[in-house]
């Protein structure tokens, strides 16, 4: 058998094997490939930027956060003048159970305006929740942080 024919036969073997593996990643997620929530949705410490609080996340490739599940609550002081979070437009995402929602991938930055200059340390609770394209979701994550006046 000539070298060309042998090479052709070898390629046929490889391509047949590859074709049989077309649906390798259709199954449930492999635990070894998954990140923890903290790794997947890395949130940087909340920063004070003048009259607002600045929040930022670094979202790992293959993971996303739901826009409507990002919340910021003021724990103290009670009348801190913390307004609603201003989130950028997200990526349209349709889900059979949740309908049309928006998600974020990669980097996310958001601001929370302050209607008054805080005179005392501000204690806030940030909640966010997301999933992996591999077909798993992570419980809501909560971060409590105190920001100096």
């Amino acid at each position: 058998m000539s070298l060309i024919r042998l090479t052709g036969a070898a390629l046929l073997v490889v391509s047949t094997a590859a074709a049989a593996n077309t649906h390798l990643f259709d199954g449930p997620a492999s635990a070894n490939d998954l990140l923890t929530a903290a790794q997947a949705f890395s949130m940087l410490p909340v920063e004070r930027h003048g009259q607002s609080l600045h929040l930022s996340w670094s979202i790992a490739p293959g993971y996303y956060l739901y826009r409507q599940r990002i919340k910021v609550e003021t724990l103290a002081p009670s009348a801190a003048g913390v307004e609603a979070i201003r989130l950028p437009d997200g990526i349209a995402h349709h889900d059979d159970h949740f309908g049309d929602v928006e998600i974020y991938r990669n980097d996310l930055e958001a601001d929370v305006p302050l209607s008054a200059t805080p005179s005392a340390p501000l204690r806030v609770r940030v909640t966010y929740q997301g999933c992996a394209d591999a077909g798993v979701c992570y419980p809501p994550q909560t971060v409590v942080q105190t920001i100096a006046p």
């Binding site: 036969a9 070898a10 046929l12 073997v13 490889v14 391509s15 047949t16 094997a17 590859a18 074709a19 049989a20 593996n21």
Partner: peptide
């Protein structure tokens, strides 16, 4: 050879 490939795959 193709059969072996298919089985391996």
């Amino acid at each position: 050879l193709a059969l072996v490939g298919a089985v391996a795959g």
